[in-house]
Amino acid sequence: MGSAHRAWLEPMRENYLNSGLTLSDLSVRVCLAKSKISELLRGTGLYPRWEIIFSLSVELKMPYAPLYRLWRQAAFEAHKSREWVERSSERAALTTTHAAPPLDHRAFRELVEYDYIHYAQVFLLDADQCDTVVSDTFDILWLCWNEALASPDTRRYAWHVLRATVMSRTPHLDGRPELGRAAFDTVALSSLSADADRMEQVAETLELFTAMSRLPDQQLDVMVLRRLCGVTDEDVATLLGLPLATVRSDERHAVHFLESVLCPQPDTEQTETEGITS
């Protein structure tokens, strides 16, 4: 199951678990065998047609516009043809065109979308992919908006959704996200003219980003936003839904780690011993 499939399936599964309905209830309401609904909710079997997903969304009271966009994207990821997608959704497709997210969801998107895109650009390869991932993030949030509002901090909930969506599309090496592309997009590199200087700076920057990728997730996010996206520490705290003191502490610890990796200090005791023996 691909990341786009999980993007709509996990909210649907969560809505089912919270609905109080049984598989038998759904089976009667959508005219589909319990075994087929169980397969669908577990993400097994054949990729489901939209008309089935739409019927379930009605019973589970899920907004169908974001669900349809995520379902469609996952269908292509599952190598379904455009003809299959259109054919399997033609009966219900018109219902997806006249829907808007809740007002507070739209307001939240206006506040954070710019910074979300900048964060995604650090990890992803092109602008279209960044736009898709951020749009997917807001569609997932729309599907889970009530849960996000009920969480201890909506901003923190939303950031976890963004991060998971970005990381699902980010190349990884040894389990850690690759940051190499960001090395070629920094202001420092673009301002260099001498080839030798440029190559030396590239090598140093690649080394820095390799070290950054080893940071714990929260420290990595803080450093990406602070040092690569130019976001103030106050705005980082707002974006991540964290206390300002936590953001500053994370940045200090991250800088200390990077300095220890990139500029290791010689062991004092070993240096003194070598001095005595010489």
Rank of each mutant, 00 (worst) to 15 (best):
R109A: 10
R13M: 05
R155C: 02
K36M: 03
L162R: 00
P101C: 11
T44R: 15
V247M: 06
A107T: 02
G20V: 00
E259C: 07
K80W: 15
G45N: 13
L239V: 04
A92K: 06
D128L: 01
E251S: 15
C130E: 02
L124G: 07
E113D: 12
A194R: 13
A203Y: 00
Y68M: 10
D197E: 12
H172C: 09
H253R: 05
H105I: 04
G241L: 15
L220H: 01
P243E: 03
Y68L: 05
A211P: 12
G180C: 12
R29Y: 05
V133N: 09
L244Y: 09
C31L: 08
E178V: 06
A237S: 10
S278R: 10
D197K: 07
C263G: 08
E200Y: 04
S38P: 04
T132N: 08
L239T: 04
G241H: 11
R29G: 01
Q219E: 15
T246S: 10
S151R: 08
A148V: 09
R49T: 09
V161L: 08
S89N: 09
A65M: 12
E10V: 15
R163N: 12
H105T: 02
D195Y: 06
A148K: 06
E204P: 00
S213A: 15
R91M: 13
E90Q: 14
T186R: 08
G45C: 10
Y68K: 10
E269T: 13
N146K: 13
R227K: 01
L239A: 09
E259H: 11
H160K: 12
R155G: 03
